[in-house]
């Protein structure tokens, strides 16, 4: 190949090998970085189960009960039950259930209801109505509700903190 032709092609043997070498070196380092980070992302989590049996419904009192290990409240109103997370939607502290001195009428959206307790978060002062709607402080979202079911085997309640459900989710139990 003459000098002219080589210039026409725009790439010399030397620059071609430089490019190959440089790219290979880059890929080698990037590959190292890739598997370093990958190794730090666990593929198996040795964490407590999210779907757990929590006893028979008759063991639960009217009103709310806090299950500290699961970080959920289980509520019973007559023959209906539902569960609500105790994890504040701001930065993850546990909210506390605070009974009110006298019942309070509140309006959330179009719904009006009377509440006898509220939730306070000790970390940054978020406050939630009884239905989990935040009304003061920094919490951006309502407290999530979790799925409740009744085990067909032994009639125990099963709560699944990995499965969020809507605000109107309730299950019927024998009062």
């Amino acid at each position: 190949m003459s000098e002219k032709e080589r210039q026409k092609e725009g790439i010399s043997r030397r620059s071609f090998f430089k490019w190959i070498g440089g790219t290979t070196a880059f890929l080698a380092f990037a590959g190292q970085g890739y598997f370093y980070v990958k190794a730090l992302l666990p593929r198996v989590l040795y964490e407590p189960l999210k779907r757990v049996k929590i006893g028979l419904s008759k063991m639960y009192p009217e009103g709310g009960k806090f299950l500290s290990k699961l970080r959920v409240f289980i509520f019973k109103e007559g023959n209906e039950m539902y569960s609500m997370s105790s994890v504040c939607t701001h930065l993850g502290c546990n909210v506390k259930i605070v009974p009110l001195a006298k019942p309070k009428k509140v309006k959330v959206g179009d719904k009006e209801f009377t509440e006898t307790f509220e939730f306070f978060c000790p970390c940054h002062g978020s406050k939630f109505h009884a239905d989990g709607t935040p009304y003061a402080g920094p919490a951006p979202l309502p407290l999530p509700r979790y799925s409740l079911e009744i085990s067909p085997e032994d009639g125990q309640l099963i709560v699944d903190t990995g499965k969020e459900v809507g605000k109107d989710f309730r299950i019927k139990v024998k009062a």
Partner: peptide
């Protein structure tokens, strides 16, 4: 104890300004 957060739960002094900020700056 994952069940009970101290009330109030405060960071060391040099992070308190950030803690105060995160408590005040939720934008609606």
């Amino acid at each position: 104890n994952s069940a009970v957060a101290p009330n109030p739960a405060k960071a060391p002094w040099y992070f308190l300004w950030l803690q105060e900020l995160i408590a005040d700056t939720t934008i609606r």
